[in-house]
Design a protein around this nucleic acid. Structure first.
Length: 475
RNA sequence: CGGGCUGUAGCGCAGUGGCUAGCGCGCUCGGUUCGGGACCGAGAGGCCGGGAGUUCAAGUCUCCCCAGCCCGACCA
């Protein structure tokens, strides 16, 4: 087993080593595409299952729309086509014949969905429509990275239709908060929810919101987005409804999504030089038992360990490693590489005392435990691991976030320290562009929930500020 | 899409134009081990990324293509 490159040596290589060695994904023969391996896919299934029930709780239903979209559909919304055309994959030949109209492989599904909503919506009584789909999409990216930006990726996309602007905006914000709570409570990933600037918003949206997280290299990662689409797609596809007072009005829309990129976020937020670190609430395997035995002690130790295993099995996702050919040390290293949150070591000495050793993946701490009350003990411990990961990430973000007022401090910070800068912005995209050119940092978002401005002036031009913003270099 | 680096056994690498392409790890078999990545012995495993060329002779030189990594440009 090759060693993992340390984060301090080469952060990018460290990330690749974790993905490959923890068997989350592998490269496919096609440029920019990846195979998600069982350990990676199990993680995605956990994410799916939690989010899916949150979507259902908030009134949404799943559906499926086809992957192939008539090229002309993409062209109906001006900004949308402009935003996506450079990264489209297009089918021009099928069944051995040149197609009359090329088919685009979906980069997102607004157009196909709104072409259908036109058929389904006539009256205000047909609204709202609250649909989600789990799907794959293709975007021909120039530069790809495992999980973070791949040519094909898996995601969910919610697409809702509403009778009023207020309702669509409320939906947009509601789903953003669903993402935020998922990131914080399940991924143990603190995020900043906020609004995107004009330059960073989704092609075709009126407003875009995002949740932004800090990775261990202090760069920002957009972990989820939601869009208030206004009436842009309704107008492009001529989707109207008759209101109670008999008038025809265009429908209001939202869309929102998270992708397999979340797995990249999880890796980069918590993992260390020993391997993957996963929060207990999302880890496909929560516990692995490692019995420690010699040939003569094997029967006794395995019997005891199997007893513990069978006791835990109804309550947790638990494995036992009975391999005769690898040493305990190797097995310990494996559980750490794979990110299993809790390891239970059981050897002859433990059995004599009727106890075992619990080892936390997050801290490496070893804790003696007896079989009585074990289940509750583990539940508490896992909650503690979950909280520790969250607070560690939160402290890291706080330590690497600065409030700045002077541009010279800003450039110096971006050059030397890097991290998040909380500052003021006049709202002019010219200042935003200049800053990006000069420092590579972009406005990640305009944080929500601030009652009053904390900064008086724009960091770049010094004119009165109209937004507090978070600047960072981003993935 | 531009610049740089890389591609030889599953992984990491070595290999002056010249005979049968090596090493470490891993893998298989046998044995001894086993509380932090065990050890000994015996094996298996190769279209040298793909194609075209130069040459008596190419893993090695030239060109084209493909893929990966890094830096740019681009990027819900």
């Amino acid at each position: 087993m090759a060693k993992i490159t340390s984060r301090s040596t080469d952060y990018s290589q460290w990330y690749i080593d974790i993905v490959m060695q923890a068997q989350l994904a592998d490269y496919s023969p096609v440029k920019g595409c990846m195979v998600i391996r069982p350990r990676g896919y199990a993680l995605w299934e956990k994410i799916q299952s939690v989010l899916d029930s949150k979507f259902k709780e908030t009134g949404h239903s799943n559906a499926y729309f086809p992957m192939l979209i008539p090229e002309s559909f993409l062209k109906k919304e001006a900004e949308h086509v402009e935003g996506f055309s450079p990264e489209l994959a297009v089918v021009t030949i099928a069944g051995g014949e040149t197609l009359e109209e090329p088919l685009v492989v979906r980069p997102t599904s607004e157009t196909i969905i709104w072409s259908m909503y036109k058929k389904w919506i006539q009256s205000y009584r047909d609204l709202p429509i609250l649909i989600n789909q789990w799907a794959n999409v293709i975007r021909w990216e120039k530069r790809t990275r495992l999980f973070l930006r791949t040519t094909e990726f898996l995601w969910q996309e919610g697409h809702t239709a509403h009778a009023t602007q207020e309702e669509a905006e409320e939906e947009t914000r509601k789903m953003l908060l669903v993402y935020k709570s998922f990131a914080e409570e399940y991924m143990a990933l603190p995020v900043i929810a906020g609004e995107k600037t004009e330059a960073e918003k989704f092609a075709g949206a009126v407003k875009t919101y995002s949740i932004e997280a800090m990775m261990q290299d202090k760069k920002a990662l957009q972990a989820g987005t939601s869009h208030d689409l206004g009436q842009n797609f309704a107008k492009a596809f001529d989707v109207t409804f008759q209101s109670p007072d008999g008038k025809l009005e265009y429908v209001w829309a939202s869309s929102w999504g998270v992708s397999t990129r979340l797995i990249g976020a999880l890796i980069m937020a918590h993992s260390d030089d020993r391997g993957l670190v996963l929060p207990p609430r999302l880890a496909p395997t929560l516990i692995r038992i490692v019995p420690i035995f010699k040939t003569e002690t094997r029967p006794r130790v395995v019997e005891y360990a199997m007893g513990v295993f069978n006791n835990l099995k109804p309550h947790f996702s638990v494995e036992i490693d009975l391999d005769d050919n690898t040493s305990p040390g190797f097995k310990f290293a494996q559980t750490e590489l794979l990110g299993i949150p809790l390891r239970i070591e059981i050897g002859p000495k433990d059995i004599e005392n009727n106890e075992m050793v619990l080892v936390r993946r997050d801290t490496g701490e070893k804790i003696k435990a007896s079989p009585s009350g074990l289940i509750d003990r583990i539940k508490v411990l896992c909650e503690d691991i979950q909280n520790t990961l969250y607070h560690r990430a939160l402290v890291f973000r706080k330590e690497n976030t600065v409030l700045l007022e002077k541009y010279s401090d800003f450039t110096e910070f971006m050059e030397k320290e890097a991290g998040f800068v909380d500052t003021g912005w006049c709202g002019d995209s010219a200042c935003e562009t200049k800053i990006k050119e000069e420092t590579k940092a972009t406005i990640r978002n305009i944080p929500l929930g601030r009652d009053e401005l904390q900064h008086g002036a724009c960091i770049y031009c010094g004119k009165p500020s109209c937004h507090d913003v978070i600047f960072a270099k981003a993935y």
